[in-house]
C-alpha cells in the first residue's frame, strides 16, 4: 500500500470526508470553499470520466481507417492535428478513443475491487469466525504474489482480451482493499456507538448497513481512487506486453507498444500516450492521496 497507513489515518483522524449531497447548494459551496485543492482535482477527474464517455463522439475521424499513402504525417498536419501513425491512421482520433479505453479499463476494475473489497472486508471483519479465517487465508495467498505477476497469471488463465484483463486487475486489486477495510471494521467494531447498537438489539446486517458501512466508505473511496491510478498504468502495461487490449482496438498502452517500433522515426508517437497515461494516473493518485490525507489531517495538526 502506498502512502501512510490508511486505517490509522481514518481512525485517528475521525474527520471523514463529507461528499457533497445533491440539492444542498450552500453546503456544497462551503465544502468547495474549504477544500479548494480537492475540488479542482475532483473537477478534473470528473472531466476525465465525462471525456471517457463521450470520446467516440468527439473524435474527429475514424481511428481505425488505414490510409497507407499518409503514413507518418507530422504533428499539426492539415486534417490531422496529431499527425498520423505508421499506417496512416489519424493519431488524434486514436488518442481520444484510446483514452476512453484506458480510463474505462482503469476505473471499472478499481470500482469492482472496491465493491468486492467492501463485501469481503465487512463480512470478514464484522462476523469473524471461520468465514474470516478462510477469507483471510485466501487473501494472504493472493497477497503473496506481486501484483503484476498475479494479474499476468490470471490473464493467461482467463484468456487474452480486454474484458479478462479487467477482471484480472479487479481480482488483483481486491485483496489489498479487503485487508485494509477489514482492519478498519475491526477497530470500528470496538467503538462505543457500535456496542450501543448491539446492545439495543439491532441485527448484524443492520449494524453493518447503518453504523459500520458509512464509516468505512470514505476510506474505501480513497483506496479506490488510488487504485484507479495504478490500474490505468497496469492496463497500459498489460496492453504493452500484448496481454490487454488488442488491435484493431487500441488503448494508450497499445499505442505506446505500436509506436515503440518506430521510435527513431517518430518518437512523439510513443511520447504523447506515455505522457497522457502518466497524467491521468497522476490526477487520480493525487486525488486519492488528498482524500486519504483529509481523513487524517486532524492528526497532523
Amino acid at each position: 500500500m502506498r502512502g501512510p497507513d490508511p486505517v490509522d489515518s481514518a481512525l485517528h483522524g475521525g474527520n471523514r470526508v463529507r461528499l457533497p449531497g445533491t440539492g444542498r447548494t450552500a453546503a456544497l459551496a462551503a465544502w468547495v470553499g474549504a477544500n479548494r485543492w480537492m475540488s479542482v482535482l475532483l473537477a478534473i477527474a470528473a472531466a476525465m470520466m465525462v471525456f471517457a464517455i463521450v470520446a467516440p463522439w468527439i473524435a474527429p475521424g475514424d481511428p481505425t481507417e488505414v490510409v497507407l499513402s499518409q503514413r507518418y504525417l507530422p504533428l499539426w498536419s492539415e486534417g490531422h492535428a496529431m499527425g498520423t501513425d505508421h499506417l496512416g491512421r489519424d493519431y488524434l482520433s486514436r488518442l481520444i478513443v484510446g483514452g476512453r479505453l484506458s480510463i474505462m479499463a482503469g476505473l471499472i476494475p478499481a470500482f469492482g475491487a472496491m465493491v468486492a473489497g467492501l463485501v469481503i472486508g465487512l463480512t470478514s471483519g464484522y462476523f469473524g469466525g471461520w468465514v474470516d479465517s478462510v477469507l483471510m487465508r485466501i487473501i494472504d495467498v493472493l497477497l503473496a504474489f506481486p501484483f503484476l505477476l498475479l494479474v499476468i497469471l490470471m490473464v493467461a488463465v482467463l484468456g487474452t482480451d480486454i474484458r479478462n484483463a479487467m477482471i484480472a486487475l479487479m481480482i488483483g486489486g481486491t485483496p489489498g482493499t479487503a485487508r485494509t477495510l477489514r482492519s478498519l471494521v475491526l477497530s470500528i467494531k470496538q467503538r462505543p456507538f457500535v456496542e450501543a447498537a448491539e446492545v439495543s438489539g439491532l441485527g448484524g446486517w443492520r449494524i453493518i448497513q447503518h453504523e459500520i458501512f458509512p464509516n468505512v466508505l470514505p476510506l474505501a473511496v480513497a483506496l479506490m481512487t488510488i487504485q484507479m491510478s495504478w490500474m490505468i498504468v497496469a492496463i497500459a502495461g498489460l496492453s504493452f506486453l500484448g496481454l490487454g487490449v488488442r488491435p484493431p482496438d487500441a488503448d494508450w498502452g497499445t499505442l505506446i507498444a505500436e509506436a515503440r517500433g518506430h521510435i527513431f522515426r517518430a518518437p512523439y508517437l510513443a511520447l504523447i500516450p506515455s505522457v497522457l497515461v502518466a497524467l491521468v494516473s497522476f490526477v487520480f493518485f493525487v486525488l486519492g492521496d488528498a482524500l486519504q490525507r483529509t481523513l487524517g489531517e486532524e492528526r497532523v495538526r
Binding site: S229, L271, A278
Partner: peptide
Amino acid sequence: SVVMISIPSFSLALI
C-alpha cells in the same frame, strides 16, 4: 515525486 510515481515504467524506460 508524484509525477515520477505516476509515470509507467515502460514509458520511463523509453525516455
